[in-house]
Nucleic acid binder design. Structure first.
Lengths: 335, 335
DNA sequence: CGCTCATATTGAAACGATTTAACGGCGGCG
DNA sequence: CGCCGCCGTTAAATCGTTTCAATATGAGCG
């Protein structure tokens, strides 16, 4: 079956290819009657414009790309939901990619996006990608960093105040009488993690009592939480923490599961505070205290910012939007 | 900043554009020394090939598209994970789109994929899209339906036996002495739903006792579960079901939450069985009995099938792969 | 009735890569 | 020593759409 193209549509409608293109892209330049005729020719032939040809000629791609750290984490799907909703308003498609915290895959997707000449990219970097981001930007792709402030701060970003979040969680644990707090989750090379830990350490210091132990790990999923909890259980009772501050809710849920299985009472023996407040935190075996991040709002704000950058490419306006997290206290820490 | 193109690379390396292209796409046709020279020219200029031009000339797009029903549902992200892993092996990029069970968005994405001439599409249809799928296939895009058998069965599919799943769940509830079973979740127009309900009805019939009540709803998320549970609580005590068979785990978790909040004892007053066995089912307030679907395996199988169809376009081989679900009994139904 | 001006349409160039047929140089073989 | 064939390279054609300058058409005005 031959694929119909503009030329065929033009012939059937008795006009030139240029007019067909105009009918589709600049309807006001075409008289209603010819437009009508062209549209029915298109329907009859089942013509579908070739996006590659259009893009090549136009020089731009309307799509927006997004690279998330972990598609299995409800927090990121919530962010993506916020992005998608905003993009739907302006009729731009979203291309979603999952780096899985793997630097190589992140690089591969960034390179793909570069080849595709996307008009904008939202990214939560997993590794060192400043050079690629610069190259992308230099080629005309708008970039907004999500859930992180880049070191060089040369790109606009939307993030949630990780220092505040770390402080809220730690202060709360101190308030309910905990003194040995294990921070579970990593890697510390992720700036979110280092900020949350840093804030936790500072809070303990200011408080004048207590300590933070970091149980690092390579990933941020449920399994990492189970592993972290087991490592914690191996410690001699005297050294065992009386609280866990988890890097995110997946880890908190995994740790919770492992602790319960081991007969540890939560929150009596070990209190737990998670991070993100995903939908499942409230429904956990022991409802999880968590630092709520405005995920959907973050996605929306990042998208708005990105569209602004696209609209005004000259704009050297770099903007860092920082949203505020909020502590939601539930049973896992209120003992 | 001017974007370097093959012509520039060619000039710098002292060869013709054709040779640059060969160096990139058919390295064996180019002598090692020139290839070396070309690669360093590419690096020096920061040349990034324009995918649109390449595609236009080649006539195909290596990317695979996937449309999921609900990106916020861990079940679908697990499926997507399986797909991504398989695609990574063959170096094809995945374009992930979320229909959100919205027919209009589903259509929009299918149209976009058609314009992009993707080589393959994995789709879990939300609405009536047979005509679009046919058009896509006729234009040379391979199609595999995921988590569903299409009515016309003209497309290959990978699904999980919903009849068996419905039977397993219902039989289990009957076995633990329940007789009034509420099926919560909809819409019934989704074939998964109708199969699971149908099997439930048949199981009750064969058993010779009990009944199924369907509490329909437009979506399959946590909120729908809460709403379903509330509707159930409004029934006079005599009519109130003693078990819930939820269309998926999100609904089960929402219902569980609402029931607990209302002081209903689970499983004593109302037993609950979910569907999917997502990662969070086991970590719920009352660990959830659920019909486990092999999500990752389904994604992998669908991808393998899709790649086969792409490799053999003439192949009129339509194949329907049906995987088996498995009941995982936990506390929410073992009373 | 002729001229101007706006509007609708046309034809051809252009986007940037890949491909293909043709070509030149070189070594091997007779 | 000359011809053949092979290898690496080149020049030009090509993919399918959009754009742009040029043209045709028709209306309005003096």
């Amino acid at each position: 079956m031959p694929q119909a193209q503009v030329r065929d549509v033009a012939r059937l409608a008795g006009v030139s290819p240029g007019t067909v293109s105009n009918a589709l892209n600049h309807p006001e330049k075409v008289s209603p009657s010819t437009r009508e005729r062209i549209l029915s020719a298109i329907a009859e032939l089942g013509f579908v414009p070739n996006d590659a040809a259009r893009q090549l000629r136009r020089g731009t791609n309307a799509s927006i790309g997004m690279i998330v750290l972990d598609i299995a984490n409800p927090f990121f799907t919530a962010v993506a939901g916020g992005v998608e909703a905003k993009l739907a308003e302006v009729g731009r498609p979203l291309v979603l990619a999952n780096s899985g915290q793997d630097h190589a895959r992140e690089i591969a997707y960034l390179d793909l996006f570069a080849e595709q000449r996307l008009s904008g990219v939202l990214v939560t970097p997993a590794g060192q990608v400043l050079d690629r981001l610069r190259r992308l930007r230099d080629r005309g792709t708008a970039i907004v960093v999500v859930d992180r402030k880049t070191g060089a701060s040369e790109f606009s970003s939307v993030s949630v105040d990780d220092d505040l979040g770390g402080r809220l969680a730690t202060q709360h644990l101190l308030d309910v009488g905990r003194r040995r707090i294990a921070f579970v989750g990593g890697p510390a090379s992720l700036s979110q993690i280092s900020h949350r830990i840093g804030a936790a350490r500072r809070t303990v210091e200011e408080f004048g009592a207590g300590e933070i132990v970091h149980l690092d790990g390579p990933t941020l999923d449920v399994e990492a939480g189970r592993i972290g909890a087991r490592r914690l259980l191996e410690l001699p009772a005297a050294e065992r923490p009386d609280a866990i501050f988890a890097a995110n809710d997946l880890i908190a849920l995994g740790a919770l599961q492992a602790l319960i299985m081991a007969g540890v009472r939560v929150p009596d023996d070990v209190a737990i505070v998670g991070y993100d407040d995903i939908e499942f935190a409230a429904a956990a075996a022991i409802p999880l205290t968590s630092v709520r991040q405005p995920a959907v709002a973050m996605g929306g704000a990042a998208t708005t910012r990105l569209l602004d950058v696209i609209a005004d490419p000259t704009g050297s306006t770099v903007e860092h939007i920082v949203l505020e997290p909020e502590l939601v206290v539930r049973q896992s820490s209120s003992g």
